[in-house]
């Protein structure tokens, strides 16, 4: 009798287990139906906020092998009998000084030059400047020169050489390069040492 009562409980337990399994299977089946459906797109967004530091600078060219001087231009052997005295190391295709004008202000700027009028080289020191180069594009800059392709005396007062064009107003990262060549007319110069200070100015037109 004891065994028969035990079997009765076992049968009830088996029956219960079957019911539980059936429920679980049905639940899993329902879940399978639910998860196989496509879901709506989900998105997130970031906003980039960027500002640029201002730059407005004038510097000597140092990375051009065809520009042979910068803050010092030596004329070691000026011949007083000729007007064609060039700087030491000068050669065809080379220039004495290169200036990089850099700006991202978005405004017009001007490149100016002057020399100290008290120098004995006043009226003797001449310059020539071609059309500046846009270093970003390696082509002619978009502005205009005051002087043409010729030799001119370096003025004693600050005088505009170049006025920037539209593409010069924001010319980063490489700027606009202006190159100048100088010569000295030796006629009338007394023997000895002569110096002149040439000042270059980049001025923003506000």
């Amino acid at each position: 009798m004891k065994n028969r009562k035990t079997n009765k409980y076992q049968r009830k337990e088996v029956s219960t287990m079957k019911k539980l399994m059936m429920v679980m299977v049905m639940g899993l089946f329902a879940m399978a139906i639910a998860v196989s459906a496509n879901a709506a797109d989900q998105t997130q967004q970031s906003t980039v906020n960027a500002t640029v530091g201002g730059i407005f600078s004038l510097s000597f060219v140092t990375d051009d092998a065809n520009v042979i001087h910068s803050n010092l231009i030596p004329f070691s052997n000026v011949d007083p009998s000729t007007s064609e005295n060039y700087s030491d190391g000068h050669a065809e295709g080379k220039t004495d000084v290169g200036l990089v004008c850099l700006s991202n202000h978005g405004s017009t700027w001007k490149l100016k030059v002057e020399m100290n009028g008290g120098s004995t080289l006043f009226h003797k020191l001449l310059f020539n400047m071609g059309q500046p180069t846009d270093r970003n594009t390696s082509s002619g800059a978009s502005g205009s020169r005051t002087y043409g392709d010729d030799w001119y005396e370096v003025p004693a007062t600050s005088t505009v050489l170049y006025t920037s064009g539209d593409y010069d107003k924001i010319n980063t990262p490489y700027g606009v390069e202006a190159t100048l060549t100088f010569k000295i007319n030796g006629a009338g110069l007394v023997p000895g040492s002569h110096t002149a200070t040439v000042t270059y100015t980049m001025a923003e037109v506000v």
């Binding site: 797109d41 970031s46 640029v52 730059i55």
Partner: peptide
């Protein structure tokens, strides 16, 4: 960002969208 040719002293904006999709 490449900041060349960008003017100083102004704010530049760009919105980036990431999308998770089954398509």
């Amino acid at each position: 960002i490449n900041p060349s040719q960008l003017a100083a002293n102004r704010l530049y904006n760009c919105r980036i969208v990431y999308t998770l999709t089954t398509s």
